[in-house]
Deep mutational scan, measured.
Amino acid sequence: HDTTVHINGLRIEVHGASEEILKWIEEAARRGVEAEEIKRWVEEALK
């Protein structure tokens, strides 16, 4: 999927993410993980 995830006011563009990654992002956000940190993880995961 190409999608934009909104976390604590930060937009994260996610290209080619699976449902699993999207669920993981939402879970991390709920746990209060910094949005910048999530963004870094997602970029690494999608390389």
Rank of each mutant, 00 (worst) to 15 (best):
H1T: 13
H1N: 13
H1E: 12
H1G: 11
H1D: 13
H1C: 08
D2Y: 09
D2K: 15
D2A: 15
D2E: 14
T3P: 10
T3S: 10
T3V: 14
T3K: 15
T4V: 15
T4Q: 11
T4N: 08
T4M: 03
V5N: 07
V5K: 07
V5F: 01
V5S: 04
V5P: 03
H6Q: 11
H6V: 15
H6K: 10
H6M: 09
H6A: 07
H6F: 02
I7E: 06
N8M: 00
G9V: 00
G9A: 03
G9Q: 04
G9E: 08
L10N: 10
L10W: 00
L10V: 15
L10G: 11
L10H: 13
L10C: 10
L10M: 12
R11E: 15
R11P: 15
R11A: 15
R11G: 15
I12R: 00
I12Y: 03
I12Q: 02
E13M: 07
E13T: 11
E13D: 14
E13L: 06
V14C: 04
V14E: 02
V14W: 03
V14P: 01
V14K: 00
V14N: 01
V14T: 08
V14R: 00
V14Y: 04
V14L: 13
H15Y: 07
H15R: 13
H15L: 14
H15C: 09
G16R: 03
G16T: 05
G16H: 07
G16M: 07
G16E: 08
G16N: 10
G16K: 04
A17R: 04
A17Q: 04
A17S: 07
A17M: 09
A17C: 04
S18C: 05
S18K: 05
S18R: 05
S18W: 06
S18A: 10
S18D: 08
S18H: 06
E19D: 12
E19M: 12
E19Y: 09
E19P: 14
E19L: 14
E19I: 13
E19K: 12
E20G: 08
E20K: 08
E20L: 10
E20C: 09
I21Y: 02
I21T: 04
I21C: 08
I21R: 00
I21L: 14
L22S: 01
L22V: 06
L22R: 06
L22C: 05
K23I: 11
K23C: 06
K23L: 12
K23Y: 07
K23S: 10
K23R: 14
K23A: 13
K23N: 11
W24G: 04
W24K: 07
W24Q: 05
I25M: 07
I25N: 00
E26T: 06
E26N: 03
E26R: 04
E26W: 08
E27S: 07
A28V: 05
A28Y: 04
A29S: 10
A29Q: 12
A29E: 08
A29W: 11
A29L: 15
R30A: 14
R30T: 10
R30L: 14
R30V: 13
R30M: 14
R31G: 09
R31I: 10
R31V: 09
R31E: 09
G32M: 06
G32I: 02
G32S: 04
G32R: 02
G32Y: 05
V33Y: 08
V33W: 12
V33A: 08
V33R: 02
V33F: 08
V33T: 07
V33L: 12
V33K: 04
E34T: 15
E34I: 10
A35K: 04
A35N: 06
A35R: 02
A35G: 09
A35V: 13
E36P: 07
E36M: 09
E36V: 10
E36R: 09
E36A: 12
E36T: 12
E36D: 11
E37T: 12
E37G: 03
E37H: 08
E37I: 14
E37V: 12
E37P: 01
I38E: 00
I38Q: 01
I38V: 04
I38C: 02
I38W: 01
I38Y: 00
K39D: 02
K39E: 05
K39M: 10
K39V: 14
K39Q: 13
R40Y: 08
R40P: 00
R40N: 09
R40T: 06
R40L: 07
W41H: 12
W41Q: 08
W41I: 12
W41R: 09
W41A: 09
W41D: 01
W41S: 05
W41K: 09
V42L: 10
V42Q: 01
V42G: 00
V42K: 00
E43P: 00
E43C: 05
E43F: 02
E43W: 01
E44T: 10
E44V: 10
E44S: 12
E44M: 08
E44D: 10
A45H: 11
A45S: 09
A45D: 02
L46W: 06
L46Y: 05
L46R: 03
L46P: 01
L46Q: 06
L46M: 11
K47G: 11
K47M: 11
K47A: 13
